[in-house]
């Protein structure tokens, strides 16, 4: 089996948005919407401060609430774990947008839904997703969780701390945040360790 996943090392991420812009160019994401965005937060008081730069995108949940709500079956999970959309079947009903607890989906002007697809066209050619390839801090890793030697498996194994967004929801995300700068975990989250 293949279980594709991504990890972002927040100890390295500087919030530069190269990933977000690379995604925009690669996938012709129109102005006004994003598949990938950055959340920057400061905690603490002068001079004891922590800043978290956190890129967010579709988490390719193991248990994705967006998929079962789709009335046409256009939202589906590929064998490799990529949560995908068959745009030809999409009727633009927005049910999946409402169902995603992470706001990862958006409507395109063409009338169908879109979101991060781990650059499946690249993955299918054996290349890295555009965000992973361009990241100038090399903080993004991608690969197969079932392969212990994949970059993402290694990064997760070696991390001091591993978090996912809102683990309490039971969505079982495949996007992992490593080494949060704040000792308590992700800012604005309950935290939670793998």
């Amino acid at each position: 089996m293949t279980r594709l996943a991504m990890a972002i090392d927040l100890a390295s991420c500087v919030g530069c948005a190269a990933c977000s812009i690379a995604c925009k160019m690669e996938n012709e994401v129109p102005l006004g919407v994003n598949r990938l965005w950055i959340r920057n937060t400061t905690v603490g008081t002068f001079p004891n401060l922590t800043v978290e730069h956190r890129p967010e995108q579709c988490l390719h949940c193991e248990n994705p609430p967006c998929v079962p709500v789709c009335p046409t079956g256009c939202c589906f999970v590929r064998d490799d774990g990529i949560v995908d959309i068959d745009v030809k079947k999409c009727i633009g009903c927005s049910a999946c947008i409402a169902a995603c607890p992470y706001d990862a989906r958006h409507m395109l002007p063409q009338g169908y839904v879109s979101k991060c697809d781990f650059c499946k066209h690249r993955v299918d050619e054996g290349r890295m997703p555009a965000c992973v390839e361009t990241c100038p801090t090399l903080c993004r890793t991608f690969g197969d969780l079932d392969d212990p030697n994949s970059p993402v498996s290694i990064a997760i194994r070696e991390a001091r701390r591993v978090d996912v967004l809102r683990p309490g929801l039971g969505t079982e995300p495949n996007l992992y945040y490593l080494n949060t700068p704040a000792a308590f975990g992700l800012v604005g989250e309950t935290g939670g360790t793998l």
Binding site: A18, S20, I21, M25, E133, P136
Partner: peptide
């Protein structure tokens, strides 16, 4: 093999 945000979007 990598580019900064400006290089990516400067096009």
């Amino acid at each position: 093999g990598m580019l900064c945000p400006r290089g990516q979007g400067g096009v």
